[in-house]
Amino acid sequence: MSFLNANTYYIAAFGLIFIGLYIVMAKKNLVKVVIGLSFVDSGINLLLISIGYIKGGTAPIFSRPGISPLKMVDPIPQALVLTAIVIGVAVLALALSLVVKLYQQYGTLDIRKIRGLKW
């Protein structure tokens, strides 16, 4: 049990990553594949955030005087996650536009039918 308690966030993060990878590899609907990519992104973001967490820590903001800097959580992973989220959104938007166009051309989202080129 102590292993579970100590690593809950990591387990959740990798759970998300693995669910996402499984969706990307096993599903045949293009929209589901894109959803899988977004799962992977969320998992990695959760991993980054939990690496910077400190037990009982506060947000790294000096909003009022007298906040001790020692109990603040690590600000760098939060900054990195901000970047990673934006990258994820960008990829998602582009992927969706490609899916829309593909659907207009083929009339289907099944990747077994969209194969003019050899996979």
Binding site: L21, L37, I44, A95, L98, V99, L117, W119
Partner: peptide
Amino acid sequence: DGLESAIKYLVQGSIGTG
């Protein structure tokens, strides 16, 4: 062809960058 290979590239590339 272009759209198909772009989405293929996008999926594989995103897994890689992940």
